[in-house]
């Protein structure tokens, strides 16, 4: 890995700055990947449920279905996450 390259030392404040910046950027990238995966999955699932026969215009019933589906999906995410956590503890 490029991480473990040469070993010329920086000063300790510089070191802290670099560490903090690198971690912040990496955490940001991971958070974006995480929310992207959630949005993609939710879109696929709710599209399939709410638009079995997609019509020429978006109706208010369509929008309502999408909104309700997304809320149910989040609730399901929480249940799956809790159930998985208790399963991992066993």
């Amino acid at each position: 890995m490029a991480f473990f390259g040469k070993d010329s030392e920086a000063s300790s404040t510089q070191t802290q700055d670099v560490k903090q910046r690198v971690m912040q950027e990496a955490a940001q990238e991971l958070a974006v990947a995480d929310v992207t995966e959630l949005i993609n999955n939710m879109t696929k699932v709710c599209y399939d449920l709410c638009f079995p026969n997609p019509g020429p215009i978006l109706t208010s019933a369509d929008s309502k279905c999408t909104e309700q589906c997304s809320k149910k999906f989040m609730a399901a995410w929480n249940i799956i996450s809790q159930t998985y956590a208790s399963r991992l503890r066993q």
Partner: peptide
């Protein structure tokens, strides 16, 4: 960033 990391001390 990778260049900056490579210049850190080993502990960091």
């Amino acid at each position: 960033d990778l260049r900056a990391i490579s210049q850190l001390d080993e502990a960091s």
